[in-house]
């Protein structure tokens, strides 16, 4: 990769839920434009790692910086603002607001940032076009197929032109053909706009879209293979 300073720097992150140690001293960097796969079996702590990196969950200890901001010291409001503006998210399911149309769903993060409705929806329409789901713009998510819904979700993650997109099992509910299409569009769009992607998955075929992978087991990173383009 390039010699850029990392976007996200994590050092020795730990996080426990009750007595279970979900994260146990994890260190890692995420660089601009790179696609990083976070792999590991269920319950290994990979989702917790993502939640910590994205500022959704505050780690118990360790250091975490986004550019030059300390994410551990940041208040909830600051982290929320960061998530709205700098990060994008794609989940396995349950993320689209069922009563809004697909277009309105994509426009949602912009509107949360205070962009006017018309402008937000114009930009949302562009991203729906790019992800080849312009035809479902006026439909509700319930009326679109699973693959279309997930592409709408990606459009929504990218609409704010974030620096990092966090994707948690984005193809988990899809068949391989749809999963492939979703992954291809996600990585293509991310690479074109030099958006970093933190891709949480347990599927090697999904991880194969990454530039490098880390494997989390029992809350620790097993191995960090060097980047291999």
């Amino acid at each position: 990769m390039t010699g850029d300073a990392p976007l996200l720097t994590a050092r020795d992150l730990s996080k426990a839920y009750g007595t279970t140690r979900a994260l146990d001293g994890v260190s890692l960097d995420v660089r601009a434009g790179e696609i990083l796969a976070v792999m590991g079996p269920s319950g290994s702590g990979k989702s917790t790692l993502m939640h910590c990196l994205a500022g959704i969950v505050r780690p118990d200890s360790g250091e975490l910086r986004y550019r030059d901001r300390d994410l551990i010291a940041a208040s909830d409001a600051e982290r929320s603002a960061l998530r709205r503006g700098e990060f994008g998210f794609v989940f396995q399911f349950g993320q689209l607001v069922p009563e809004l149309t697909c277009l309105e769903n994509v426009a949602l993060p912009l509107r949360m940032e205070g962009v006017r409705r018309k402008e937000a929806e114009r930009r949302a329409a562009y991203w729906l076009e790019r992800l080849d789901v312009a035809d479902v713009a006026g439909k509700r998510p319930g009326q679109a197929s699973g693959g279309q819904g997930q592409r709408v979700a990606i459009a929504r993650a990218l609409v704010t032109e974030p620096s990092v997109v966090f994707a948690d099992e984005p193809t988990g509910a899809l068949d391989s053909l749809n999963g492939e299409m979703v992954m291809r569009l996600l990585t293509e769009c991310a690479e074109q706009s030099r958006t970093a992607v933190v891709l949480v998955t347990h599927e090697p075929s999904v991880a194969a879209y990454s530039h490098r992978e880390i494997v989390v087991r029992d809350g620790r990173i097993r191995t960090s293979a060097g980047s291999a383009r």
């Binding site: 992978e213 191995t223 293979a225 291999a228």
Partner: peptide, 10 residues
């Protein structure tokens, strides 16, 4: 081995 496999897969 996993790293090698994934590299090839990539």
């Amino acid at each position: 081995q996993r790293a090698a496999h994934l590299d090839l897969m990539r």
